[in-house]
Write a protein that binds this DNA or RNA. Structure first.
Lengths: 199, 199
DNA sequence: ACCTATATTGACCATTTGGTCAACCGGGCG
DNA sequence: CGCCCGGTTGACCAAATGGTCAATATAGGT
């Protein structure tokens, strides 16, 4: 399967993989057409032949990173929990574990996001993806809201979803800054005790 | 006061301010010696005359950003709270508010941090500063630990401090991604209901 | 006025980068 | 075989960048 792809496609993926390696090693700032070509073992003109301009290569790389980073998949195991709170908890735990095990992808995503603040096209892509990620959380949050209306007085599902995404972000950052000390379980326990039972 | 400073010092600060403006507009990647010179209205050779090399300028800018971003100041108002939990809460709220009102500084700090993953010197500076920030939280966490040992079974003060820092980071990121929707109070309320009262 | 140290500049250089182009190659097909 | 066309390359170009340097302006002290 997949062996009858056009040679152009396989070359593109070769180059894309090389671009991913280079970006992971030297950052997006260090991603140059020639460096990618060298990593792929081809001439730099060939990279431009397949992608037209560097911008297109960068954008293709962003697409690839997005595809591998922010897909939020709610598995059957999670869906089976009866209480919305338990589902949310399992989901948070899953996402924390996933992101903390792909520090490179997360770092790249953050770099792209910083770049998006200046480049219109990148910013739009990142923004849309973040919105998708957030809306996936919003679904659960709405159930949580109707299931426990007292605890969340004055809070909207959008607000809750934003908090969840931000939570994941902070978690991912922490896992990159200090991977040794990072522990998902301790993390959850700590927050539970830290914020909870206050009202 | 301060008017009798050496002219060299005032020039350096002029250049540094220009560098800050440029970095805020075009990112650290777009920070070039010539762009800084242009923003300061001087020749690019003069920038190098005062800073030696670009690296030194970048590092000076990082020092400036660090000084304005990660200083954790526990005011008397906060210190007066009797319960450790209340102090922590007030501190979190203060830091959230502060960071959400300096999005540019925060963005620059994050960019530096990403750069630190590749450049030894930058990484060491950022790491040290993060450690200082974290240790400031650890002090409060230790008090919280002795004040409520039951809620935090199996969690260390270091772990709690790490969570707090990560929490702030996620919050800062969120405030930058979506400044309109960001609201400190709703944020706290949401987390309170989301994580709390689970055990 | 002169002299000296500091500040400042424009010209210049080597390197890197994105991008173009003509030439070339190799296989499929008439 | 010869032709053609997608893939591939090296040479080349213009622009930008970090950095150097000699020349000059300027201010302050004597």
């Amino acid at each position: 399967m997949g062996r009858n792809r056009k040679p152009e496609e396989v070359r593109r993926e070769q180059i894309l993989q090389a671009a991913f390696d280079v970006a992971g090693r030297d950052g997006i700032g260090g991603l140059t057409v020639r460096a990618v070509a060298a990593a792929a073992g081809i001439s730099h003109a060939l990279v431009l032949f397949h992608f037209g301009r560097k911008d297109a290569l960068v954008r293709a790389l962003l697409d690839s990173v997005i595809g591998a980073t922010t897909v939020l998949h709610i598995s059957d195991d999670i869906a089976r929990f009866p209480h919305a709170r338990d589902r949310l908890h399992a989901l948070l735990q899953q996402e924390m574990a996933r992101l903390s095990h792909q520090p490179e992808q997360t770092r790249l995503f953050l770099e792209f996001w910083a770049m998006g603040a200046r480049e219109e096209a990148i910013g739009a892509l990142i923004g849309a993806e973040l919105e998708r990620y957030r809306s996936a959380f919003r679904a659960i949050m709405e159930e949580l809201l109707v299931s426990e209306p007292v605890a969340f007085a004055g809070v909207t599902a959008d607000g809750l979803a934003a908090v969840a995404v931000s939570w994941i972000h902070g978690c991912a950052v922490q896992a990159m800054v200090d991977p040794q000390h990072f522990d998902t379980d301790e993390y959850l326990t700590a927050v539970r005790g830290m914020i909870g039972r206050l009202a």
